[in-house]
Write a protein that binds this DNA or RNA. Structure first.
Lengths: 209, 209, 209, 209
DNA sequence: AATGAATGAGGGTTCATTCAT
DNA sequence: TATGAATGAACCCTCATTCAT
């Protein structure tokens, strides 16, 4: 059995049923092996959750890192959202999993939360910087960060890879909307390709794949 | 024991630990009674979850109903977001709880999902109508509805009543941001009181309570 | 509420579901009162079982006592069976309840078992005496007593007061069959009224009520 | 642990304490394993009861099938009783268990009752056929079937393998008594080996082993 | 690498019983 | 006489985990 599949399955189940609502029997059954066999790959149920969280955070970090190259602060934000949505919708492994209290060991939880917090604070810094140089509308960075995080976390609850939209389309649309929310003036801030989408799709409505 | 307290406690726990991560012993212990006593109020653990969901939906419905009086479509949306955020931050009972697969009985789940879907579709209709009369920027109503729902659902994960912000402040800020995202032109669409807030708070940053 | 009804209901439930399979909630619900109210009549669940047993034994004792007047040993046996079957089929109170191990307190169980044993031994004495004076076929009294007891105990499992047979008909038929089993010669031992039944019913088949 | 032992133990306990009066802890304790281990063999407490019932019915069916070879109707009946008593007294697995209402799932209960009913009706047919060809005394087949079933069901309540009688002795004695009950004339119907028993045992009293 | 069997801990639920009202 | 609320104990069952094979 491929280890990769194990984590994808776990991510899927944790996301749909929650950590405590997922039993190792569920996973084993889904993978076509026995509960006992799982212990050849993982030492713990917790480890599964932990690793899934780690990969999710790595993906978020990557999305952020790759967005840093953008020129403007708004551009960075827009790119970061785009990257992250793309990642989430592309691989079932990269799921934003809601962290249930007490599911992870204290140190693990602390580590995950610290990593998330670091990402969040970096994100807030971008917003604050953008506000300072007037490329982003005055707003509260912390609140806006939460607001956007919520939108991103929710994707896994409704996005269906077999549905009408590709991940890139969703990524494009969401990043555009958030950019719109943050840009001090709609007209001058929107990047060129959004214009293309508006044209192609007619009134910016997402077209089916 | 007050029945109200029971539901608030349950909502709190389900939100923090997930449905399966919450044991009746946790609840009972928190309430200062025994597990068995819980069964004088509820017939089932499931019923607790169900009722919490029902009340959450009622609150959302109320938020929507009370927003209908607004003149413009954007105004309705803004008011709805404001109302709902206010409700969520005000009472621990009104929590947007993530529905874990299989936690509710099939008919219950169906009912809850149907109700949520109805709210969602009404919300989408507002967006679509706004787009049609050009009071809302061209966008995909379904996607935007999901995007906003995510932001609202996430609130319970980070909002702290003992923190620096009042619920009304958060409600004001979030509804303003979403309005900004949707208004075709920022300047002309923003309602008067947002201007007041901008003034009072200095650059729209949320002030501490 | 009539106390009598309580015991009848209890007897019915114990018989259908067993002692442990009957909850006080079942009884209370059936009686239209609350569990707590039951404790105004009985101090214990056990007491219910105990009293039902006592009455069942009293009925058996009465059946035996009233049969002693018969002239022959076989006549006594026949009458005893007739009386007991009549009692069982007449009143829902008089049920032969199978005694589950550990249901009664040790002393109570001992008492009930002693009483049953006394009845049984008296019954065996009749058989033995009959064998001695050749009015009953040579057989093992103990085994025959068990055999007949089984037939009697089973009645509550199948007899339906609303069915085609009256209790007296069943009593007549069963006592006749057992008498047949025990009489050294069928022709000379059968009492007169069996002849009547044979005549009336055609070939001894039980007629509908 | 041998699966066979599990069912024997279960049968024993259900018989002595009733289904609801038997806890899995009792069984596990008796078997020297833990409650949880039971679930490696059975999916349910109910399944234990169900399987025990099934085996009991299979034994009854076998007893009936093997009796069909007998020439006369009375002979069949006699043999069937003999076979069944032998089986019951031989193996603790083959216990006639009283079915408590609601202990089995509706479909299971229906199945068991249907099977029992089939056996019962076949038995009644034998009686009726015997009455028709005058090899059995005129009587009501249904009532007689109940009467005999009761005698058989009761055996498990009193028979003690460590007691003075072997199972075959009991089987011989009971089948002889019922044959006596049903034969139109005692003298001519009794099979030869009963005579032997009468001789050996002195007046047909069962000798100790 | 895989598994069947076993298990301690705990989870949801029922139950007989008590008691203040 | 009746009851709603409370509870300790027990019950059936599930779960994560282990281990010999």
């Amino acid at each position: 059995m491929k280890e990769q599949v194990l984590y994808e399955t776990a991510a899927h189940w944790f996301n749909k049923h929650g950590y405590h609502g997922t039993s190792l029997a569920d996973l084993a059954n889904d993978l076509g092996i026995t509960k006992a066999s799982l212990y050849n790959y993982v030492s713990d149920k917790r480890e599964l959750l932990y690793k899934v969280h780690v990969r999710s955070i790595e993906a978020a970090k990557a999305a952020q890192d790759q967005a840093m190259a953008e020129d403007t602060w708004l551009g960075k934000i827009r790119k970061m959202v785009f990257n992250y949505v793309s990642a989430i919708t592309r691989s079932p492994m990269v799921t934003f999993i809601v962290l249930e209290d007490g599911a992870l060991a204290p140190e693990q939880a602390e580590e995950i939360l610290a990593a998330r917090s670091a990402l969040d604070h970096e994100f807030r810094r971008w917003i604050a910087a953008g506000i300072r140089d007037r490329s982003i509308v005055p707003c509260d960075p912390k609140l806006v960060s939460f607001l956007i995080t919520g939108g991103l976390a929710w994707i896994t609850k409704w996005y269906d890879p077999d549905g009408p939209w590709t991940g890139e389309q969703v990524a494009e649309a969401m990043s555009a909307m958030y950019a719109r929310m943050l840009s001090p003036s709609f007209a001058e801030e929107l990047p060129a390709d959004v214009g293309r989408i508006l044209t192609e799709a007619g009134l910016f409505t997402l077209p089916a794949k």
